[in-house]
């Protein structure tokens, strides 16, 4: 079944067969993660938060990857972690994208004071390192899941805004947009009908990069203990919780970190290929 799914996805992607090997591998990895996230309760041998063994039990037949500091099954938490970490990152990215992207297009099309006000706000928000700003905001509002999503989305939307605005400005300066304005078309129609179709390819590529970035930021915050809070399974916190094992030569803490790395790399390779394809299409 999963094979049929894979082949369908590959076909749906259109031309993925001709993609470079690294991008193909990246696609397969992404699909694998998606399956893990969606099917977590079916695959995981134990529940997410149940205490099923002793503390820090070694790898065994019962606990393939051992247990964590409270005696929860590490493999199960790793699988549930896919769901939590990816799900949150995805929600955050989409939120950042819709707001940042739309406002960016509006700023570019409207120009004048609308653009000035939006751009200056974004300038100030971007003048501080994102992680530091997130730390300040989380201190103020507390780190609940909803706060985490809203804060990261807001900060990330500024980057999307910049890109969307820059790309759209190039489009808006073209004669066909002026021609449409001179016919008496409204701003919304021009944004959605004339500008949007021309900014989609770079924005889609950016979607991938932003997802990586959000995903890494959330993981970093969780690692620092101020992101996703226990007992929810999450890769960043799992690294933190088991970090002590490293000193004893145990690689277990590297597994959740590796899971993060693998997905991020996969997304990056796919994005890189997509960017190449998009720039090729333009010529």
């Amino acid at each position: 079944m999963s094979r049929a799914l894979v082949s369908h996805m590959v076909k749906a992607w259109g031309g993925a067969r001709n993609a470079p090997v690294m991008a193909q591998v990246g696609l397969v990895v992404m699909i694998f993660y998606a399956a893990l996230a969606l099917l977590a309760p079916l695959i995981a041998p134990y529940p997410e938060t149940a205490l099923v063994g002793g503390m820090f039990e070694p790898w065994s037949a019962t606990f393939p990857l051992g247990t964590d500091q409270l005696g929860r099954d590490f493999l199960s938490r790793l699988i549930y972690g896919a769901r939590n970490t990816i799900g949150l990152a995805l929600a955050t990215t989409l939120l950042a994208f819709t707001t940042g992207g739309f406002l960016g297009l509006v700023a570019a099309e409207r120009g004048g004071w609308v653009d000035q006000v939006l751009s200056r706000i974004v300038d100030v928000l971007m003048a501080m390192p994102q992680l530091i700003f997130a730390l300040v905001l989380l201190t103020a509002f507390g780190s609940s899941i909803l706060n985490l999503v809203l804060i990261i989305a807001a900060l990330d939307a500024t980057r999307v805004f910049r890109l969307a605005r820059a790309v759209a400005l190039n489009v808006v300066s073209l004669d066909f947009v002026e021609a449409a304005r001179l016919q008496g078309h409204g701003a919304l129609r021009i944004i959605l009908f004339e500008v949007l179709p021309n900014v989609i390819p770079p924005l889609v590529a950016e979607l991938g990069l932003r997802f990586c970035f959000v995903f890494l930021t959330i993981s970093a915050l969780s690692f620092l203990g101020i992101g996703i809070q226990p007992p929810t399974a999450d890769w960043g916190s799992m690294v933190r919780e088991t970090a002590a094992l490293i000193s004893y030569g145990d690689v277990t803490p590297l597994l959740p970190a590796g899971a993060i790395v693998l997905l991020a790399i996969a997304v990056n390779f796919v994005v890189d290929w997509f960017l190449l394809k998009a720039s090729g299409l333009k010529e």
């Binding site: 073209l174 004669d175 066909f176 021609a179 449409a180 004339e194 179709p197 021309n198």
Partner: peptide, 12 residues
């Protein structure tokens, strides 16, 4: 316009 390339929306 002078440049028909930029006067027509390339996606339409």
């Amino acid at each position: 316009y002078q440049l028909p390339d930029t006067a027509l929306n390339p996606r339409h």
